[in-house]
Write a protein that binds this DNA or RNA. Structure first.
Length: 665
DNA sequence: CTATAGGTAAACAATT
DNA sequence: AAATTGTTTACCTATA
């Protein structure tokens, strides 16, 4: 045993050196960000816009990261189940954003086609298109998406691979992408850009020579670029030719992969980009960058009473200058990253569906809603610590995206933020029961330098219960930790101390003198006791909570189940909630109370198959057959029940609402 | 605001 | 004697 553990430790330690300095103490977590930020900033060439563009997102993200999130919060978000849900939510958000983007592109395309066709006299085609507008839109959307995904893949293979260092922040960006984030990002970008402005702005004049080119390139890139001529037809852009040419080049490089010509057509003069199909009437009343009385330019939020004022503001504040173009670039990157992320996630989703033997066509109606719902609820919970208006922490969610492959490298860097005391009570609650969670993410935890979302007590207990004899020496517990979690292959002093501390502190851990020494066992009764009695034996409380949340028949079944089997059935929803991201918000409340039960139940052997095989090669002997044994088998079939239950929750409505969005993909 | 749970650090004793 | 193991206290943070 000792030898094995020793070699294990050595191996893991050496494999853990990703060039990332090992974290020696939690208190150092906060200060570490500064260094990386400095690096990122140091790369920026204030003179070269292209370089600047490449750096802006990472820089801004790096800027926001340390202040916005504490290690604990980061780590909480890092917990795979949450990450999963978060990912799903973000995926939904991205989908929305992308959809908007595509929609705008489509509108633009449509308008362009219309004008083109009118000029060309292709009436028949136009009629066709008008007749089947909806269908055509969707088809084109799909085509565009395919093209863009190809483009994205190309980017991944070519350019993005080389940008690895900045990938983490960018991914963080995508992960945390939400309107608020974007706003904040833009503010940051604006700030960065402002810092450079003194240098770059000085020579600007009002040359309008290439306004045509610029406006068209810009508008082709992003509908959000406000290159609207002034009412009198004059353009207010003022950027040196040189810069414009460069901008054009740059933009072209980004858009060449797209279904080209459609976007290349300049916008009909005086026809702003809009979100409505009816092109001409509303353009005076609506503008993609104008809404709710304020300018929607990223990071602006200037109040404009009416459209005229807004146009004025747009032309004065967001003219074609370095700052605007830089912001445009960032926006493009954002979109690109979202696209990339979308492609990845879609691919992943397909793989998951395939793996789960679900028809690829079904997942959307089925999964998406749940994802959204769950993410909504999860976001709600997770975002609480963050003041409104502030961006959500760019969760290092990047890691979980492709846990096993990217995990270690990506995570290790991202997890630098989350060294602190992460696994708080809530982690214990919100995350799946340790057993199933571990079973599912076993490989992930083994390879990824992420802190497991469990308390020490939970882990210790699990380790002990997983052992053949249900008892472990301290050293064996250590070994289990290091074997199962990459995270515990460092900071040994810290967590080992914590383990000892927990063993001593919690009554549920019983030290038994043995021939060879002392071993630790688990007193399940005590373990259960240590959980908040809030809900223990009070299904009515849960009932109230559930009903209070306005759940319908589903809740009734849950209530029944609760009353009937005293929480045991609640476990499945809990699992569902955590693992699949189903959004049974209700369970968030009572969840923790249940989790202990679930945890115990599950770890009584059901999960062990997922854990033990590779690690130990021995089967878990379930000693506690009586009450729990029957439950043990449940988690296995849980997935099935989960999937069943998932489709019915009250979030179904959300499901359907979101469906259209998803279907567009 | 308070109580509780959990994480970390540390001092110290007992054991190996 | 040094390392390990075990106990205890204190402090901090997050949460309910």
């Amino acid at each position: 045993m000792m030898v094995e553990s020793a070699t294990e430790t050595i191996r893991t330690v050496s494999s853990n050196q990703n060039g990332v300095s090992s974290l020696t103490s939690q208190s150092e977590g906060g200060g570490r960000e500064g260094g990386s930020n400095g690096d990122a900033n140091g790369e920026i060439s204030p003179v070269d816009l292209l370089h600047l563009q490449q750096q802006q997102v990472p820089v801004s993200m790096a800027m926001m990261t340390p202040q916005m999130i504490t290690p604990q919060q980061m780590q909480q978000i890092l917990s795979p189940p949450q990450l999963q849900a978060l990912l799903q939510q973000q995926q939904a958000l991205m989908l929305q954003q992308l959809q908007e983007y595509y929609k705008k592109q489509q509108e633009q395309l449509h308008l362009q086609l219309l004008s083109q066709q009118q000029q060309a006299g292709k009436q028949a085609k136009e009629q066709q298109q008008l007749g089947s507008k909806q269908l055509a839109f969707q088809q084109q959307l799909i085509q565009m998406q395919q093209l863009q995904q190809q483009h994205i893949i190309n980017l991944q293979r070519q350019g993005l691979v080389g940008i690895q260092p900045s990938q983490v922040p960018i991914q963080s960006l995508q992960q945390a992408m939400c309107p608020t984030d974007l706003q904040q990002l833009w503010k940051d970008v604006a700030g960065v850009q402002n810092a450079d402005e003194p240098i770059k702005h000085e020579g600007l004049d009002l040359s309008t020579n290439s306004s045509n080119t610029t406006s068209y390139t810009a508008s082709k890139v992003s509908p959000q670029i406000p290159h609207h001529p002034l009412p009198n037809g004059q353009n207010s852009m003022h950027t040196p030719k040189r810069d414009r040419a460069r901008l054009f080049e740059w933009i072209s490089s980004f858009t060449k992969g797209e279904s080209s010509d459609e976007h290349l057509t300049p916008y009909p003069k005086g026809t702003p980009l809009q979100s409505t199909h009816s092109s001409h009437e509303e353009h005076t009343a609506s503008h993609p960058l104008y809404g709710h009385g304020e300018c929607k330019w990223p990071g602006c939020e200037a109040l404009c009473e009416d459209m005229g004022q807004f146009i004025k503001h747009l032309n004065s504040e967001h003219a074609l200058d370095d700052r605007s173009t830089a912001q445009c670039r960032v926006q493009m990157q954002v979109v690109q990253q979202l696209e990339i992320q979308l492609a990845k996630e879609s691919e992943r989703l397909q793989a998951m569906m395939t793996h789960l033997h679900m028809r690829p066509s079904e997942p959307k109606p089925f999964n998406q809603p749940l994802n959204l719902a769950s993410s909504a609820s999860l976001l709600k919970r997770d975002s609480e610590p963050f003041p409104e208006g502030l961006p959500h922490p760019p969760t290092s969610a990047a890691a979980p995206i492709t846990p096993l492959r990217q995990g270690p490298s990506v995570i290790s860097s991202s997890s630098l933020h989350g060294v602190g005391p992460i696994r708080r009570r809530n982690s214990d609650k919100y995350c799946t029961p340790i057993a199933s969670e571990l079973a599912q993410n076993c490989e992930f935890y083994k390879n990824a330098d992420v802190r497991p979302p469990f308390t020490y007590a939970s882990l210790i207990r699990h380790a002990i219960l997983e052992s053949p004899e249900r008892q472990l020496t301290l050293n064996e517990i250590y070994n289990w930790f290091t074997r199962m979690f990459a995270y515990f292959r460092r900071n040994t002093a810290t967590w080992k101390n914590a383990v000892r501390h927990n063993l001593s502190l919690h009554k549920c851990f019983v030290r038994v003198e043995n021939v060879k020494g002392a071993v630790w066992t688990v007193d399940e009764v005590e373990y259960q006791k240590r959980r908040p009695p809030k809900m223990t034996g009070s299904p009515t409380l849960v009932k109230n909570m559930i009903s209070g949340l306005g759940f319908g028949s589903l809740n009734a079944s849950y209530q029944a189940a609760l009353a009937e089997s005293s929480l045991s059935l609640l476990n499945s929803p809990t699992l569902i909630n955590n693992n699949t991201g189903a959004s049974l918000n209700m369970l968030h409340i009572g969840h923790d109370d249940v989790s202990s039960t679930v945890e115990q139940v599950n770890s009584n052997g059901s999960c062990s198959p997922g854990l033990s095989p590779q690690q130990y090669g021995h089967q878990i002997h379930v000693k506690e057959e009586p009450a729990e044994l029957e439950e043990d088998s449940r988690p296995v079939s849980l997935i099935a029940s989960v999937t069943q239950n998932l489709s019915m929750p009250s979030d179904e409505r959300d499901m359907e609402e979101e469906l259209p969005t998803e279907e567009l993909e």
